[in-house]
Design a protein around this nucleic acid. Sequence first.
DNA 1: CCTTGGCACTCGTAGGTCCCGAGTGCTAAG
DNA 2: CTTAGCACTCGGGACCTACGAGTGCCAAGG
Lengths: 337, 337
Amino acid sequence: MLDERKLTVLRAIVEDYVSTTEPVGSKSLVDRHHFDVSSATIRNDMAVLEEQGFIAQPHTSAGRVPTDKGYRLFVDRLSSVKPLSVAERRAIETFLGGAYSLDDVVTRTVRLLVQLTRQVAVVQYPSLTRSAIRHIELVPLAPQRLLLVLITDTGRVEQCTVELPEPWDDDSVSHVRAVVNTCLGGHKLSDAAVMVSDLAERLPAGERVNANAVLAVLLASLVERNEEKIVFGGAANLAAHDFSKGLREVLEALEEQVVLMRLLGETTEPAILTVRIGTENEVAGLQSTSVVSTWYGNADQPLAKLGVLGPTRMDYPGTMGAVRAVARYVGQILAES
Amino acid sequence: MLDERKLTVLRAIVEDYVSTTEPVGSKSLVDRHHFDVSSATIRNDMAVLEEQGFIAQPHTSAGRVPTDKGYRLFVDRLSSVKPLSVAERRAIETFLGGAYSLDDVVTRTVRLLVQLTRQVAVVQYPSLTRSAIRHIELVPLAPQRLLLVLITDTGRVEQCTVELPEPWDDDSVSHVRAVVNTCLGGHKLSDAAVMVSDLAERLPAGERVNANAVLAVLLASLVERNEEKIVFGGAANLAAHDFSKGLREVLEALEEQVVLMRLLGETTEPAILTVRIGTENEVAGLQSTSVVSTWYGNADQPLAKLGVLGPTRMDYPGTMGAVRAVARYVGQILAES
DNA sequence: CCTTGGCACTCGTAGGTCCCGAGTGCTAAG
DNA sequence: CTTAGCACTCGGGACCTACGAGTGCCAAGG
């Protein structure tokens, strides 16, 4: 139903519109891309494309603009991910290589994506439950209060104060700390729950009450509350693309943790780029934006997701290239540490 | 040179303009505030106020708008900080009371300020150098690499990986950890530098090389790099106030750590509210905004600064009230833990 | 010297009209 | 199926006008 040329026309429309921001007409189309047919023929093709819902005209007598469905077809069949230049790759490598902690890696990743795509970047911290316990530290604050610090193998450091049912001396704390670390160290946080009963048996009765309180907080509050940690950057780039009215709406959505999570939530398989275009996006207020996202981490062990958000009129091949490249490097960097 | 009534007129102009967003004329002024003089008299007063540079007219024949100088006079002499309502105070108390970690306190503080003022909130983490060392943890990652975790009495937890000149076994690590903590624990980070030489003497020669590497990183990199940590929120509120052109500029500035720091940098004395209006602000790109900021922490021991940023046309008394109240509660919350 | 009513003047905004041109759809011929 | 030709549409810019809020000034009165 759509012959080769019509697809080429659609691709040309998308490319022109993305680069000029203006509805593209049949005439300028034949000029810019040297089609060997006349503008009238292109007009006929465009009529068909419009009938099928791939393009639309904003005003009766203006050029055509791609619809979400049109972008979808473009992304699926008419374009390929654009690899980064050598210079860009080297820039990523050196920039991310200089990171000295997980926080730093994440912050730099956001800035990198913002820089490369000139859009909004969203990066999730490695999932807690998918991480393994590297160390658990208990720092006494008061007789019945201590600071619980969890360090994972992915570099996350989460803290939480715990109120104890009974007073505790330093020796008990040290002992429990040692036992907890030998028992749970190296295990995934998602598996830790089942090992707790086992752990309690190794402790003298006098230490169990408090130890249980600590473990309860560790598994219930600390992990649950911090499981999803996510940051974004590049909001200034939204102001450039004229979002007409929606800017405030978009900014509001971005500042909601929950929304950000849902934004990346649909990212399905690891190592695959997910693209959600306009209304495909379920989040209200972001239906005039597109999201390109993917997992990062080792192929066999995905850690979390990252992505880029911009107007539906975005450079998909370029954005996809940047997201893919950055995700790979981040996975690499984190695997080393 | 400015009699009582002229000041009242200025106050009325500021208040009207802030609430209506529209230039205010002599006629509407006498209506809204029941002056017992005619509009002609007010006009004369306004002419004087304009001559002195406190107000200006956007177009030849429009009402008057306060200048930065006008706002300055208003803040200094014509208004007083507006205390929060009882309901608001209670809301602050319960909301901040539920925080379980420093990160959480800071995040909640930002959201609170955004909520209360409907503007942009900026909150600094407690200064590292002003904090005392509560605990230092060394987690071996590899024979020649370990993770250094610093926990301060203000609840900050900073991490950093350290490359060691020589391989280290677990016993050495434990020993050094113990010595470091007994020597440095409880001392201010700003004082820690001088104690390091003392510390080295307590260690066997074989452990000194690595211990020195760790301490160097602790004092040089970790503290320095993270000394200033600062977050903001409420960017969506900028979109509401029409910043005409400058929105992008403002957003860009806010995303720069350095700029944020300079923004609060001028906040002078603890317990005093600092207000910087429009061009008083040195940061380029934020010269059409005002900043209300203050220190938080105990009166005798300020921890860091927080503030609110908005258009010069802002509700100063209300904003100042919110900033002051929130700063007090945050100081209180952090003092407890 | 301050206040006030009166009045002419300014000028930005809103609404209306006109024209241009890009872009379209249709038709008839190749 | 392609193409040239042509009538048609309609958004946007240029231009104009009327309106009215708001001003500055002046001369008279307290």
